[in-house]
Design a protein around this nucleic acid. Structure first.
Lengths: 335, 335
DNA sequence: CTGTTAGCGCCTTCAT
DNA sequence: ATGAAGGCGCTAACAG
């Protein structure tokens, strides 16, 4: 018998306080700051909460306290598999601390970036986690003025809006380019999505490899199908193709499938490297070499940075480079 | 020169009104209900908005108007690829109407279900979209009492909490079971995740197939790796295995890979059917037969139902069966 | 078309 | 340890 009647109006703290025979503010404190209230009062208030079926209105609380306990999370799109582990971990950690994630999708559209951020800001989030760097300088300026903790992710920069958790896209590209060069492959190609980060990796690759290389650029989101198309395109341009670097494991998987369809053996006839270390990469046939990015770590760090700021702490290391690692598997001749 | 100074305090409507030389409420109306304000006033207010860098505080507005313009979206976990297209579409459509999605993850944990819903409700969402059916009866009762529009998805039920967009899991299972039976396969197996919906499909399959069948149950989230394990397990139990029905395309892909690893030809030696029609299904080698579920349609319908209710409309059809379709491809001997 | 008056539900500040 | 005011920023409801 601890549920409220089917009252049309949900109970407010006022009702709880009356039911408990205390003042409104005491009821408030019993729930949100129990340390300063006597044990018996707390018990009475909690009983009243049960009796009335009270659920606090965090909107109202946030209005006065200036803490909405919401964090805006902005992704290009939810169907970019790459980012899901970090968003998932971010959401989980925030939830454990009583924060909820407000989701925004920019769709890789720079104009929408501003729109989405403005609507987010109007919801008074206690923090904003952005996937990628905020591109538009006016938006960056505006964000800085709001004084809301901002974490940009999945990239590196000298001058983030505020905080940053990521890795150097260019260095990833360089590492893969050097790896390809060390393997002695002459005729290599790149299969890439057209987003800014992927293009930075391409630039890094070419710098390290020492030459511009044939590139098939596919529209986002990258997928197995796009990977098949990309390999077809690359082979048409360079029949002697020995190795392909892909901007995602999904794309790489498509390259593997297309290679198989054409009777090309991987890695003997064609080597393939992906990016992201998706869950399937280690279990394909052949297993897929790739660049490991610790997505959950990005989400975790981003959550910690935001939460620290929410607690009023100053963050000693606002720029976190989580690094990366090439994982050599069968598709490039590894174990 | 339309940005505010680096004032520490963000501008409020009050400042805008003063700058525009109108009353607070007129400024409010100029922004949120321009129809009832003169054109010149609107122009003056908009200038003032630019000049002050004003961003509305939707929390405050929502407190009074009882409309938070947020919708809670609850998923088991973000890494369940299956649900992403619907969540993505839901988010997009809501955003286009000025609504934001508040994300919650239950982690397939029934206890968390209640916790997540309560924290969501305390944020006063204008609607709640739940992936799956709400399991806990007490939670269902509480949800009904809140009078918030609720849409359950990805399943069918006679007595939803409120509204419903989905399809019959059991009928999907039946359809696949009949399909397998019609193919004349004797020795079949099921590779499935352990979630309630997948298990309903298994039950439907066995009912239509006319027998209980060897089943490998893997922990969620289902993945390629789990699919490989599942096939290994099924083959160990039933070496004569002719066909496998999988609870997701990810799992099915793992079965394909494991079959290839064992030198089994698909579909000649082993037929495989997935579920979900993931983007890669049509492009694998062999192409993967599967059950098509229109995920974006679920998201779209759910958004429309919620939005209709938010506008105060009564929904004529609160239960929407979006159906499904078996897509026959090479992995079961199709074209 | 515009303005005045009251709060929404809660929390901060100051008293007791 | 508890309580009484006051107000967060905005918008319904009623005036004018």
């Amino acid at each position: 018998m601890h549920e409220a009647s089917r009252s049309p109006k949900p109970a407010t703290l006022h009702e709880v306080a009356r039911a408990a025979g205390v003042s409104l503010i005491t009821a408030s404190r019993a729930l949100s700051n129990p340390g300063v209230v006597s044990a018996t009062t707390i018990a009475r208030v909690q009983q009243a909460v049960e009796a009335t079926g009270y659920i606090p209105n965090l909107l109202a609380g946030g209005l006065k306290s200036k803490r909405s306990r919401m964090v805006a999370g902005i992704v290009p799109a939810l169907n970019v598999a790459q980012f899901l582990p970090s968003v998932q971990t971010l959401t989980e950690i925030l939830a454990a601390e009583g924060y909820q994630l407000l989701l925004g999708q920019t769709g890789y559209d720079r104009a929408r970036e501003e729109l989405v951020l403005n609507t987010m800001i109007s919801r008074q989030p206690d923090g904003i986690v952005f996937t990628g760097l905020v591109q538009d300088e006016a938006v960056r300026a505006r964000l800085r003025r709001t004084r809301v903790p901002v974490v940009e992710t999945w990239d590196l920069s000298d001058a983030p809006v505020d905080m940053l958790v990521g890795f150097s896209q260019e260095r990833v590209g360089c590492a893969v380019g050097e790896y390809f060069r060390a393997k002695g492959w002459q005729h290599v190609g790149i299969a890439t999505a057209g987003d800014p980060r992927a293009l930075q990796r391409k630039a890094g690759f070419e710098a390290a490899f020492g030459a511009t290389v044939p590139t098939a650029t596919v529209p986002a989101p990258s997928s197995l199908q796009r990977g098949r198309q990309a390999l077809a395109e690359l082979l048409a341009r360079e029949p002697r193709l020995q190795a392909v670097s892909c901007s995602s494991d999904q794309l790489a998987q498509g390259v593997l499938v297309e290679a198989q369809a054409r009777g090309l053996r991987v890695p003997q006839d064609l080597a393939v490297c992906g990016f992201g270390n998706a869950d399937f990469a280690a279990h394909l046939l052949p297993t897929l070499s790739t660049v490991l990015i610790d997505g959950p770590a990005i989400g975790r760090m981003a959550a910690q940075l935001v939460l620290a700021r929410c607690r009023g702490e100053t963050v000693a290391q606002p720029i976190v480079d989580i690094g990366f690692r090439i994982v050599e598997r069968q598709s490039t001749g590894g174990g």
